[in-house]
């Protein structure tokens, strides 16, 4: 009798789990991932431009400092996005939710495959 009940509970639970919609928190996390990618990219480009301009001012390398550093900043921005996307995809595969937790590179692993 009780086994039958347990089985029915398990079946009902499985049915509920299967039709579970992504919660508001999950979609909010997805939004967070998006914001993070956008701002990481822009920030890297701005850092490149600022650093290049600073080097030009300091050492009189104009315009090469700006050109080189801006390109490096752009590369860094793309790398930041790829790293964030890789991590988000890994988390999604792992636990089914859009990953924001632990999102940024845990230094070693994903910087390794990013390079």
């Amino acid at each position: 009798m009780s086994e039958d009940l347990n089985q029915r509970i398990a079946e009902a639970q499985a049915k509920l789990d299967a039709q579970k919609q992504p919660s508001a928190i999950d979609s909010a996390k997805g939004m967070g991932v998006g914001f993070k990618m956008a701002s990481d990219f822009i920030a890297a480009v701005i850092v490149g431009a600022g650093l290049g301009w600073g080097l030009d001012e300091l050492f009189g390398w104009s315009p090469w400092g700006l050109i080189v550093c801006l390109l490096l900043g752009f590369i860094t921005g793309v790398k930041n996005i790829v790293a964030a996307a890789t991590e988000a995809a890994r988390q999604t595969a792992e636990n089914g939710s859009t990953g924001l937790r632990n999102m940024a590179p845990k230094s070693g692993q994903d910087k390794g495959d990013g390079a």
Binding site: A43, A44, T76, K79, N80
Partner: peptide, 27 residues
């Protein structure tokens, strides 16, 4: 200096990582 990067490209990766680190507070 991420692990597992060959030496001949490491200098470049280090530059990118430094840029990446500097962009963090801005981001």
């Amino acid at each position: 200096t991420p692990s597992g990067v060959p030496l001949y490209i490491l200098w470049f990766v280090v530059i990118i990582e430094i840029f990446s680190f500097l962009s963090r507070p801005l981001s």
